[in-house]
Nucleic acid binder design. Structure first.
Length: 150
DNA sequence: CGTCTTTGACCAGCGC
DNA sequence: GCGCTGGTCAAAGACG
């Protein structure tokens, strides 16, 4: 989880105060009781005959942001986009382009709050951040958009 | 020229 | 067994 620190740092910068820390972010979704919004929709895991519960570690982030593309420092490649029934906004599927790093992430916007963006991470990064200070400027621009909107 | 986005099709799991 | 739904693939285009 230490690899998430990079993202967390960024998120702290982005969402200092906006970050919704209601009932624990980055919680492992095993029993989708309250997280029906996520677990109920994404709970369809494939387990062929294996009685073992192969629960993939998933981490859901709820962030208030105008932009759904929160650059956490990794390179993401979009590989799909689907519309969900509960949400009128489509959900975007991203994947880390690093070799051997099969970290997936999906971004979904809530119908209730247009400014609410749910980012669900799946897997952990096993490589350093590719980004440098160059792209940090981009993050800064996002922050500015953020501040402006407020 | 290389990389990434877009978009429809395809596939697998689940409910009925 | 069939149809629906969520998740992924892959070809083509856009963009620097």
């Amino acid at each position: 989880m230490e690899n998430f620190q990079g993202f967390l740092t960024t998120s702290s910068l982005l969402g200092n105060g906006e970050f919704q820390s209601g009932k624990g972010l980055m919680e492992e979704m095993e029993d989708g009781a309250e997280n029906k919004t996520f677990a109920g929709l994404l709970g369809a895991q494939k387990k062929k005959g294996d009685h073992k519960k192969i629960r993939k570690p998933r981490y859901a982030f709820q962030t208030r942001s105008k932009v759904d593309i929160l650059d956490d420092g990794y390179r993401w490649r979009k590989y799909g986009q689907k519309a969900v029934k509960n949400n009128k906004f489509p959900r975007s599927y991203y994947r880390c382009t690093h070799q051997g790093c099969n970290v997936k992430k999906q971004i979904q916007r809530l119908t209730k709050d247009e400014g609410m963006v749910v980012t669900t991470y799946e897997g952990m990064h096993s490589h350093p951040i590719q980004n440098s200070n160059d792209n940090f400027e981009h993050i800064l621009s996002q922050m500015q958009i953020y501040t402006t909107s407020f």
